[in-house]
């Protein structure tokens, strides 16, 4: 009886913040990034506050150079904030709190590995897969990689080296590598930039299906407002450099969404209004 009564002695305010931070996947609190010192210093990101709940799909849009990639690097702890704090999965500056899958803006496949080996790389590093890697790399893991590659149309290129692929193919392989280990937090930096409209729409649908299956938290950087509107549950718009978030709106359309949605008048109207907003802040 004593034990069960104990929690009620915690002040209510404190309890609610503890609960709130545990309920969030990502929390940027006035985080800013400055590169360099003195006269040559570049502010890549103005103090930015961004809170993302578990299972949300957030799209980040904004003009080039405003700090979108910088935010992704903060969240994946590749960068430390110059000021403010970044908490991921309830822990500060830790990549191990949540299983992270990241697709970089430039496909960074390792040139000495085949596509299959490149995509398999996370399974070699990330627990719990790493414990089975030696045993499964020629069996279950291999099948898994091939299934994912087939999903993006690269089934015939598993044995090729990265330099034997086109830019768009590299981008698809790069996306596979971010997905293979079933991450809880998916960070995608313009993953469809080098693709044609049809391939892109196909992959949007694939990504949406994957998202609805496993419900990871997704942070997607994109320049394509239709992509943002079709996929995301929430869109954040950033101002030009030094960037900060100037608009943060939910997209309440039910999921799964049909691809024809992007041609419906209310959807077009929504992307139009976002476009106007960005056009305004660019000036």
């Amino acid at each position: 009886m004593q034990m069960s009564a104990a929690p009620s002695t915690v002040p209510p305010a404190q309890a609610s913040t503890a609960q709130a931070s545990a309920a969030r996947a990502v929390e940027l609190d006035r985080a800013s990034v400055v590169f360099g010192r003195g006269a040559g210093a570049v502010t890549a990101l103005a103090p930015t506050t961004l809170r993302i709940g578990h299972g949300a799909f957030v799209a980040l849009v904004g003009p080039s150079g405003c700090g979108k990639s910088t935010i992704l690097k903060l969240v994946s702890s590749l960068l430390r904030p110059s000021d403010g704090s970044v908490v991921v999965g309830g822990r500060e500056a830790s990549v191990r709190a949540l299983r992270i899958g990241m697709a970089f803006q430039n496909p960074t496949l390792l040139p000495w590995l085949t596509i299959e080996r490149n995509v398999m790389l996370p399974l070699k590093i990330v627990p719990p897969f790493r414990h089975d890697f030696r045993r499964e790399r020629t069996r279950a893991f291999r099948d898994r990689v091939h299934a994912l590659l087939a999903r993006v149309g690269l089934q015939d290129f598993a044995g090729h080296y990265p330099w034997q692929l086109s830019g768009g193919m590299l981008q698809r392989a790069n996306l596979c590598r971010a997905l293979i280990h079933e991450p809880d937090l998916l960070l995608l930096d313009e993953p469809f930039g080098a693709l044609d409209q049809f391939t892109r729409e196909e992959l949007w649908q694939d990504l949406q299906a994957l998202y609805l299956e496993r419900r990871p938290t997704v942070l997607l950087v994109t320049h394509d407002l239709r992509e943002a509107g079709y996929l995301a549950t929430r869109i954040c718009v950033m101002s030009p450099r030094p960037g900060r978030i100037i608009s943060d709106r939910p997209i309440d359309l039910p999921q799964p969404r049909d691809i024809d949605l992007i041609y419906r008048p209310d959807f077009v109207e929504m992307t139009q209004s976002l476009r106007e907003l960005i056009a305004q802040v660019r000036k």
Binding site: I100, W112, I125, V126
Partner: peptide, 23 residues
């Protein structure tokens, strides 16, 4: 950039050396 790929996966320094540096 190649090292960053492994860092986001939570790889240790020696894993980065084995998988990126040495190859």
């Amino acid at each position: 950039e190649l090292e960053d790929v492994l860092k986001t996966l939570g790889a240790s320094r020696s894993e980065i050396l084995w998988n990126v540096g040495l190859p």
